[in-house]
Design a protein around this nucleic acid. Structure first.
Lengths: 246, 246
DNA sequence: TACACCAAGTTGGTATACCTAATTGCAACA
DNA sequence: TGTTGCAATTAGGTATACCAACTTGGTGTA
């Protein structure tokens, strides 16, 4: 196992220095490595390997792995750890969850969001528009959905959406490859904001549901179609039999 | 801090013996202590105190605390830890999340659940009926909703419902105090199963939404009303200003 | 009496040593 | 040649020592 990110030059063992910073930084670095596919889905992770690669001791490594596990980015594999595989069934399931939660959230947002809240969301959308940087587009797309959900003023709902977007983050970069689909998604986002601004809960909800569903369908089709090609690039995509419960 | 559960008589430091068992047992004991209110909401937890009280070392204590944090049963408080307070706004928010997720789940269950799946759920309901033990009723009530959600065959949805029920577990015992409300909730559960059996998605969804909403309203009213009395019993209930996001 | 200041204790963060289970490799034997 | 068995290695689980930040209590001075 090699260090996916350049290790800090002087990560000397300053025990206890600026509390939590070490653990948080390590977590962020591991998280980025997983999301950037520097650590490939399905890859084995060993605590001692990460310890060496990131110049941290096992305690913060374990803490980071546990946090990654709760985010669905790492999993236990027997006694050990693996980077969470990309699971096409999970992607489908998360889309269903998102549709349920986000449509409910936007209905609440219609009631609760202030005009300035909505203006802020619209602004976020506008500033994200011109970006050509793919990574930035993906991040902005995820942010939009999280910000939209947050207008419901319901923290657990926001957390649920954020969690789903995190789990989907590694695959969503696939969907924005073409400028077409990029433009398409952006227009749908704008339509949702317009309906929200018009305080039309049913329209906003319906537009959002359609957006989530269609975007996900394209993504899943793409993933299934490109499966062979992606595998050749070292990215394996599993398809677990639908498990009724976790 | 005293040991809320009887410490194991011979919890000698058998390092590494039966892997994970120590950590899991500690987690379960801490979790039970929180859910049983042996550790009171808002109470300070220190890693060294728990280490001493439960005869475990800090490593599994920290792991257990981190897991409790992801379940919403413990929180960071500055550098330290506290048992998660009972937050009436969080309860309201979780009810909204549940309504969104569970109604969507039951609609999916109408399409996907087999007759035997539904029969199993009905059986769970029947066997839970005669129980007079309050704690058992609460557990069964939570189990019902989780099992119902699981019939959608969507693991993230099931996890979301389970997580919400866990966060609500410490307050739900309040709602079943009267045989009336107990009976009431049980009847509503039965009606949902009947609609599910009849493959009537809209009816099942509507019944479930009403059930969740009305049960939660009763609970929140009760909590607000009994706030003073509960505080006298050492149970403080906070009401955080609605935070738009976590 | 009030307040500034310092020392001791407490606490979470980190590093690391040790334990046992599981895996791996090789060798001896059938 | 295939299989069994043991030893070395690896890896996660656990215990614990040490660090720095923070808290607390008391003391001495203004």
């Amino acid at each position: 196992m090699t260090a996916p990110s350049p290790p800090p030059s002087a990560a000397s063992a300053r025990a206890g220095a600026d509390a939590g910073s070490q653990t948080l930084q390590l977590f962020e670095r591991l998280r980025s490595a997983v999301l950037n596919l520097d650590l490939m889905p399905g890859e084995r992770l060993t605590e001692r390997g990460l310890e060496a690669a990131y110049h941290a001791s096992r305690t913060p490594v374990r803490a980071a792995l546990m946090r990654l596990e709760t985010e669905g980015l790492a999993q236990r594999d027997g006694r050990g750890w693996i980077v969470a595989p990309i699971d096409i069934d999970e992607i489908r399931a998360l889309a269903e969850l998102r549709e349920a939660v986000e449509t409910a959230a936007v209905r609440l947002a219609v009631q609760r969001a202030s005009d300035s809240d909505i203006a802020g969301l619209a602004e976020l959308l506008e500033t994200a528009r011109p970006t050509e940087d793919e990574e930035e587009v993906v991040r902005a797309g995820g942010d939009f959905h999280v910000e939209l959900a947050s207008l419901a003023g319901n923290a657990p709902m926001t957390d649920a959406v954020r969690g789903a977007m995190t789990r989907l983050a590694r695959t969503r970069w696939l969907e924005v490859r073409t400028p077409d689909s990029r433009e398409h998604a952006w227009n749908e986002h704008r339509a949702v904001v317009a309906a929200l601004r018009a305080r039309d809960a049913s329209l906003a909800s319906e537009l959002l549901a359609t957006h989530i569903r269609s975007t996900n369908e394209r993504l899943v089709e793409h993933l299934a179609g490109e499966r062979r090609r992606l595998r050749a690039r070292g990215l394996s995509i599993v398809e677990s039999p639908t498990r009724p419960a976790s």
